[in-house]
Simulated scan of single mutants.
Amino acid sequence: MATTARFTNNVGVINQGKDNTDRIRTNEYLTPDFAATIAIAPTKSYTLVKPGTLTGAVTFTAGVGTSTTAPYVGDTMTFILIPDGTTRVATFGTGFLPTGTLSVTTAKTANISFIFDGANWEETGRSVSA
């Protein structure tokens, strides 16, 4: 849970190993198999998570790093969730601020996004396709 951002701090000094231009923005795409609990350990500035088809209820947990390792303040993470032929419930547990659950309706796709605040992943938005 680094409490600094990946980009320039307020005194004009670029934090070592971080980027103030987004020219070297780092991305990762994670495709974990479906399981009742899926642990995500984001290490890049943007993480896209598209697990296998949801065939049951799922709980996601997310790493919050250490005071000097990723994730960093401002890092973002987006989930793309697709259920099988039944409405499925996704819960966001450890590492996420409590925002409730997300029901992914049959024959729809759900997206939910988060930003890291230095301690937790805070929800920034969600949608379920029409």
Rank of each mutant, 00 (worst) to 15 (best):
M1F: 09
A2R: 08
T3N: 13
A5F: 09
F7Q: 09
F7C: 09
T8S: 09
T8H: 07
N9E: 06
G12V: 07
V13C: 11
V13H: 14
I14L: 15
I14Q: 15
N15Y: 06
K18D: 04
K18P: 04
D19T: 02
N20K: 08
R23V: 01
R23I: 00
R25Y: 05
R25C: 03
N27M: 10
L30P: 08
L30T: 01
F34H: 03
A36I: 01
T37L: 14
T37K: 14
T37Y: 11
T37V: 15
I38H: 13
I38T: 12
A39S: 13
I40E: 10
I40A: 12
S45M: 15
Y46V: 11
V49H: 11
V49S: 11
V49T: 08
K50I: 00
P51A: 05
L54D: 02
T55V: 04
G56W: 00
G56K: 02
V58G: 06
V58Q: 06
F60W: 04
T61I: 12
T61G: 15
A62P: 09
G63I: 00
V64G: 13
S67Q: 07
T68K: 15
T69G: 14
T69A: 15
A70Y: 02
P71E: 05
Y72G: 08
V73Q: 08
D75Y: 12
T76V: 12
F79G: 03
I80G: 10
L81I: 03
L81D: 03
I82Y: 00
D84R: 07
G85P: 00
G85S: 07
G85T: 01
T86M: 06
R88L: 02
R88M: 03
V89A: 05
F92S: 11
G93V: 04
P98Q: 12
G100R: 08
S103A: 13
S103I: 00
S103L: 03
S103Y: 01
V104P: 01
V104G: 01
V104S: 01
V104R: 01
T105K: 10
T106Q: 13
A107E: 02
K108W: 00
T109W: 02
N111K: 13
I112K: 15
S113G: 13
F116V: 03
G118Q: 06
G118Y: 09
N120R: 07
N120Y: 05
W121S: 06
E122T: 04
E122S: 11
E123K: 14
E123S: 14
T124S: 10
G125F: 04
G125D: 03
R126N: 04
R126V: 00
S127R: 10
V128R: 04
A130T: 03
